[in-house]
Simulated assay, not measured.
Amino acid sequence: MVDGTRFRRGRLMNDTEQFQRRWRLYQRLSRLPEGESLIELADRFEVSSKTIQRDIATLRAVGLEVVEVTEKFGLKRWRVQPDMTRVPNFLWDEAVAIYLGRKFLEPLAGTIFWEAAQRAFAKLKATFKPEALSIIESLGPLIHQTSIGSSDYSARAQVIDDLMTAIEDHKVTTIEYHSLKTDAPRPISVQPLGMVYHEGSLFLMAIAEEHGQVRHYKIDRLSGVDITENHFTPPEGFDLKQHLSGTLGVYGVDQDQPLRTVRIQFAVAAARYIQEHTWHKSQTLEPQPDGTVICILQLASLVEVESWILGFGPRAEALEPPELRQSVADSLQEALGSYSNP
């Protein structure tokens, strides 16, 4: 305690956790008609009263009417104006577009945004007359989102919420994790840094304390989360996007691992498909006179690019680096062996 104000152990907080705290702060005040005092809010979010004041100022600056109310004996509380908790007025086509787009927010299931999104859609639905709703619902199937291989996190809200808290508070956490290499779950002590949504699944990115490296943990394989009281200091300047910039997925690499030039030649049958997409921010595409195309990437990790190449079968050839070419050849040879006997 310093001058009656609590400080979060003197550490600096990044933009992500500030956003999460302000989101939770607004959610809490929206649900409490009587509001809460600065001291109560500071205790709940484990920050100083001045930090809460800055958070409230930020919410007000973006147009949210968080107001201070003075009650008996001079007690001051902060609360959200009742009108601000209602659904804003939309034009009919705007409301329909948002309602029909709810399926695209399904990956948020289990996150801090999912509950609010569901309430918003329910309120929108209630504004439509039965006849209109029938027409609107008939439009839904016209745009279909495939979900092959996607994970459903609707039943994992508590696990995800606990992890978000650990990330925000920078607390060492023990997870029960069942990797594909083990026969049963085992406890792993980690320092949670953030989460990544990749190809239909959520991954926790954290420093594994047993070897001090950033690893990824698929949320589907977590069976327990225990947040300890031990705090950690994240690596200075760590950024998830930058950490994954040398990969084609979630296999992060050490900061000192150099980038390597990856060259893949795609057959005519796959060339146009390759040119229709951006596969990596470093990519360069070189169309060849014979109709093939060479894709050039700068990557530090070759794990996921190998799987990507193998997915194209005979329509992709790894040209370099040599170790990638050899690894792909070995995998294809092994696959061929599975078909050698009827």
Score class of each variant (00 low, 15 high):
334 E>I: 12
104 F>M: 12
330 D>V: 08
204 L>E: 03
81 Q>L: 14
57 A>Y: 08
128 F>I: 04
246 G>I: 02
59 L>V: 02
113 F>T: 09
324 L>T: 01
34 E>F: 10
58 T>F: 15
82 P>S: 06
263 R>T: 05
189 S>A: 14
130 P>V: 02
289 P>R: 08
19 F>Y: 11
139 L>N: 06
176 E>N: 14
94 E>W: 05
177 Y>K: 04
201 S>A: 13
10 G>Y: 07
183 D>A: 15
119 R>T: 09
54 R>D: 01
70 T>D: 02
211 H>Y: 09
275 Q>K: 02
157 A>I: 07
258 P>G: 00
281 K>L: 13
36 E>R: 15
57 A>M: 11
217 Y>N: 02
256 D>Y: 05
222 L>A: 01
171 K>R: 15
257 Q>P: 08
220 D>N: 09
59 L>G: 03
134 S>C: 09
81 Q>G: 04
269 A>M: 06
59 L>C: 04
103 K>H: 13
140 G>I: 09
68 E>Q: 11
185 P>V: 07
303 V>I: 15
294 I>Q: 11
342 P>S: 14
325 R>Q: 06
95 A>H: 06
195 M>E: 01
202 L>H: 10
46 E>T: 09
180 L>K: 15
161 D>I: 03
280 H>P: 02
287 P>T: 06
327 S>M: 07
9 R>D: 14
270 A>T: 00
70 T>F: 00
17 E>R: 09
225 V>P: 03
4 G>F: 08
112 I>G: 07
197 Y>W: 11
315 R>M: 14
153 Y>S: 05
39 I>L: 15
203 F>L: 01
84 M>E: 15
188 I>C: 09
143 I>W: 10
313 G>L: 05
201 S>F: 02
103 K>D: 15
289 P>G: 10
132 A>L: 11
194 G>N: 01
142 L>Y: 10
47 V>L: 01
204 L>P: 02
58 T>Y: 13
79 R>P: 01
229 E>P: 09
130 P>H: 00
165 T>V: 10
98 I>M: 10
40 E>F: 04
277 H>W: 11
287 P>N: 05
155 A>Y: 07
22 R>S: 07
115 E>G: 10
199 E>Y: 08
184 A>T: 13
54 R>V: 01
213 Q>R: 15
337 G>T: 02
272 R>F: 12
